[in-house]
């Protein structure tokens, strides 16, 4: 077997990855102020709309999914 990739075994690399991720988020927030918008809906042109909507969507998604699990989760051999 050839040598293994281990870049994410080092906590320093994970930190770097997360760090650059947060920086890119910040850049995206800043660029938004300088972009010319062509909105079909009033909210579409609002500052940082997509950032807020994306974040809320995913939190909501997880929240609802967790509630859904209460109702639909069954053992793997449920149908057998």
């Amino acid at each position: 077997m050839k040598k293994e990739l281990k870049i994410f075994d080092k906590p320093k690399n994970v930190k770097r990855l997360l760090g650059s991720f947060y920086v890119s988020l910040l850049i995206l927030l800043i660029i938004d102020f300088f972009i010319q918008k062509h909105a079909e809906f009033p909210w579409e042109g609002a500052t940082e709309f997509f950032a807020v909507y994306g974040f809320i969507s995913c939190v909501l998604l997880i929240f609802v999914a967790k509630i859904l699990r209460l109702f639909v989760k069954r053992d793997e051999d449920y149908y057998e």
């Binding site: 938004d32 062509h38 974040f55 997880i62």
Partner: peptide
């Protein structure tokens, strides 16, 4: 510009939610 940034914001802040959760 608006479409690219809008889409990147939507996705990256969704990813942020994933990370934090």
């Amino acid at each position: 510009g608006a479409h690219v940034i809008g889409q990147l914001q939507l996705l990256m802040f969704g990813a942020l939610a994933f990370c934090l959760l």
